[in-house]
């Protein structure tokens, strides 16, 4: 974790290369977590509407992004 602290200070160096890379990494992580959670919610029987409300996006947006997948086809539609 001390490494992390040191790196966190590096981020304060305002070097765009460091900051932008961090944003990219965060986006990738967020995308993966979103996929995991949405898939989980769907297997628990949540509707696209319910998922959309929690994610703060439209039902269409969440369906477009995560719908049409392999496992989801078996449930609804």
């Amino acid at each position: 974790m001390s490494d992390g602290v040191q790196l966190a200070q590096e981020a304060g160096s305002r070097d765009p290369a460091v900051g932008l890379r961090a944003v990219r990494a965060l986006r990738e992580l967020a995308e993966r977590l979103e996929k995991l959670q949405v898939e989980h919610a769907r297997t628990l029987g949540w509707s696209w509407q319910e998922i959309a409300v929690c994610l703060g996006v439209s039902r269409q947006a969440v369906h477009k992004k995560h719908g049409g997948g392999r496992r989801i086809l078996t449930k609804e539609r």
């Binding site: 490494d3 992390g4 790196l7 966190a8 590096e10 981020a11 460091v18 900051g19 890379r21 961090a22 990219r24 990494a25 965060l26 990738e28 992580l29 993966r32």
Partner: peptide
């Protein structure tokens, strides 16, 4: 995933 870059954000 980019562990180093994520670490810069704590």
């Amino acid at each position: 995933l980019d562990p180093e870059a994520l670490a810069t954000l704590g």
